[in-house]
Design a protein around this nucleic acid. Sequence first.
DNA 1: GCCGTTTGTCGCAGAGTTGTGCCTGACCAA
DNA 2: TTGGTCAGGCACAACTCTGCGACAAACGGC
Lengths: 239, 239
Amino acid sequence: MQSAPHIVVVDDHGDIRDLVGKYLAQQGYRISVAESGTALRRILERGAPDPIVLDVMMPGEDGLSVCRQLRSTMQLPIIFLTAMADDTDRIIGLELGADDYLTKPFNPRELLARIRAVLRRVNSLPPNREAIKAKTVQFDHWQLDVGRRELIGGDGVGIALSTAEFRLLKAFLEHPGLVLSRDQLLDLTAGRSADCFDRSIDNQVSRLRKKIELDPKNPAIIKTHWGGGYSFSAEIASA
Amino acid sequence: MQSAPHIVVVDDHGDIRDLVGKYLAQQGYRISVAESGTALRRILERGAPDPIVLDVMMPGEDGLSVCRQLRSTMQLPIIFLTAMADDTDRIIGLELGADDYLTKPFNPRELLARIRAVLRRVNSLPPNREAIKAKTVQFDHWQLDVGRRELIGGDGVGIALSTAEFRLLKAFLEHPGLVLSRDQLLDLTAGRSADCFDRSIDNQVSRLRKKIELDPKNPAIIKTHWGGGYSFSAEIASA
DNA sequence: GCCGTTTGTCGCAGAGTTGTGCCTGACCAA
DNA sequence: TTGGTCAGGCACAACTCTGCGACAAACGGC
């Protein structure tokens, strides 16, 4: 959680700039807005922002050419806004190196979700599939059957895990001991659903704890790091 | 600490100039006041100040145009004062290159906080992530596990660090030996909360010392530089 | 189409952390 | 030595973060 990310919104419509800017500022981001590619370049001179939200359709220089030009000089995450729901344009945008796109009219919440996803990806951990090549993994008094997505207790009794629980547990097993932020966990659990409220991770952790911890109130396997995230602190042995 | 920063307050209201000027002078800053853009330019001829506090609404030439003109000729931190609580205007200010803004009526303390934040940003140290690419760092009789956010003592016993403690220690490890001012430390520890009273750093240092120093009363690792800040003076080896 | 399961969201209460006030003691300059 | 400023440290308060129960929406099987 470094200092708040800096987002630049580029759109020729004042009302969209207002709406988006206001909403994102409210969410704690540092916002700059620009009405054209030229104005954007002026902002960029004063330091690189984290992601850029860029309208495709603008009079004069359009978003695609701005993107093309930016990409040639610097590595910046770009999220496109486009009025055209036509897939062709989406694909062109992504081909140019956009990290994501959104078609108007859009829900501000969804934009927020995309932005967070992009930011997550930028700070993402390298994957570590090695740890889990094995068919079963042992930790604490459990044995995880990766294929069956099932936990087997010391007494041989199996407990079924839901998809999300299994993904979360796998993310932990692939990065044992590390303190993982909620954003990283969202990323690791293949945060397919563009959900933005990372409190959902809290809930998943809570549910998982209820299944695997002897005493869920005093968790011994998944530890909480106040202000930091969670870590998996049990010994792991793959078989 | 170098010589006190020089702040120019530009507002057409005499009472605000007095109030703000008096308060900031009391805090140890060198203050100039101006009632208009013309007066500001006269002050600027005599040397560039550090930040400018600029009212948006002024008769004649307003703050926005003053800002636009300043930005075209020199690189100066600008903090806007605006009576309009409307977010649109805030964003317009940022678009023009303001570094921060404040809506009237404002708390002088908050203005102070913003000024300090801007000054911190201007004097900020370049980040030095290289030093800590390694997974663990050794110093004194400790070994810091960066991923686990844990200190391991010579006896192998781990000590958990809180988020703020970990950030502070990391800041020190990334700039070993350097005397870091409280402002720089606030900046390095991602001083998210724009709190102005740097005594909080003292407290963090105190808490950290209690955890890592053999004798917290006679600190050997984190040294105090009277009137200057703190420095990390242990040998560091990354593994 | 209905129903059970899963999963995200909300809201509140509790826990832990972190900032602030205040006092004491250390350091520096006359 | 004396006065002033700055740092250390304690304790409290405020704050933020987290845990979790409850609810609702989404999903999938039948």
